[in-house]
């Protein structure tokens, strides 16, 4: 049974259809003017620009950092500096990117509530579902554009060191986006429930950190398996449920793996699309929760 779930090709097809349907539905129902408006507004946020500048500093700073390194030579060609630039940059992109994603997701709706723009919008013939979708899609455009921007800077930094087109980088950035999508969707759900951006921002950081630590639950499950205590068993069961329902952002660490891809490394063809589907499904769950709390929210 479990293997059937894990590797059945028809299930894969079904998943593909579901995901395509989700994307099509989003594209169809999104009020693009709201999304675009959110995007334009988001670009003017000072925190966002601040993070962007910081990431640029780090990305180009990494070049100076490695420039100090002594070329130790040895008997074969090594490129520690390229590896370091890659690692520093992908980390910077991950951290600043996720911060941008969290701040934007946490603030777009509460800000509009605070300055009452939402009143003028929701009094128009726009359903709350559409409004929220527009905002969410707008956030995603911001996150994606930021990611793309940082990715381009990263490529430039990398290209200066090693003039090869960094194809793997594209995949890494692409994957990173879906990691952010999950964090962003759940942060957005918290934001839809609150009136200020502070709480959802903290919640977003919490989501990101716990999302990366989901694997720890596995050891709880394993320990409870050997225990006789019924409380331990119960805890183990709870941990099992949480481990299997909470998103595990560590799965996306594939991005660092493919970035420093070794010669003749494992074929990565199926992991990437599967992770994309994973990201979209959790984002969908996050968005439905967001709509659920926003549907009857008193503004």
């Amino acid at each position: 049974m479990s293997i059937w779930l894990a590797s059945n090709p028809w299930l894969t097809v079904l998943y593909g259809v579901i995901v395509l349907a989700i994307i099509a539905a989003v594209a169809y129902y999104t009020p693009w003017s709201i999304a675009l408006f959110t995007f334009r507004e988001g670009l003017r946020k000072k925190t966002l620009i601040g993070f962007l500048i910081l990431s640029i500093l780090v990305i180009f700073g990494s070049m100076f950092m490695t420039a100090m390194m002594y070329d130790t030579g040895g008997t074969v060609a090594t490129d520690v500096d390229v590896k370091l630039i890659k690692d520093i940059c992908i980390t910077a992109i991950s951290i600043f990117g996720v911060l941008i994603a969290i701040f934007i997701s946490a603030s777009v709706v509460p800000t509009e509530i605070e300055n009452k723009v939402i009143y003028t919008v929701l009094s128009k013939p726009v359903r709350r579902f559409q409004y929220l979708l527009g905002k969410f899609v707008g956030v995603q455009i911001i996150v994606a554009v930021n990611l793309l921007l940082m990715g381009v800077l990263f490529s430039i930094a990398l290209y200066i060191k090693e003039p090869i087109f960094p194809r793997m980088l594209l995949y890494a950035i692409f994957l990173t986006y879906f990691e952010f999508l999950i964090v962003s969707a759940f942060t957005f759900a918290v934001a839809a429930a609150s009136t200020s951006a502070v709480l959802p921002t903290i919640a977003g950081l919490f989501i990101y950190i716990t999302g990366n630590l989901t694997q720890y639950l596995e050891s709880v499950v394993n320990r409870s398996e050997v225990s006789e205590n019924s409380v331990d068993k119960g805890l183990g069961w709870l941990a099992w449920v949480l481990r299997n329902t909470l998103p595990d952002l560590q799965y996306f660490s594939l991005k660092t793996q493919i970035l420093s891809l070794q010669i003749n490394d494992t074929p990565k063809d199926i992991q990437i699309p599967n992770l994309v589907v994973y990201g979209i499904l959790y984002a969908l769950a996050g968005y439905i929760i967001a709509f659920w709390v926003f549907r009857r929210k008193e503004l």
Binding site: F37, N115, K116, V117, Y119, T120, S123, K124, P125, V126
Partner: peptide, 14 residues
């Protein structure tokens, strides 16, 4: 909704 125009109190415009 199409037939309603609404001016909120003290609203902010981007």
């Amino acid at each position: 909704r199409k037939h309603i125009g609404y001016l909120p109190e003290g609203a902010y415009y981007p």
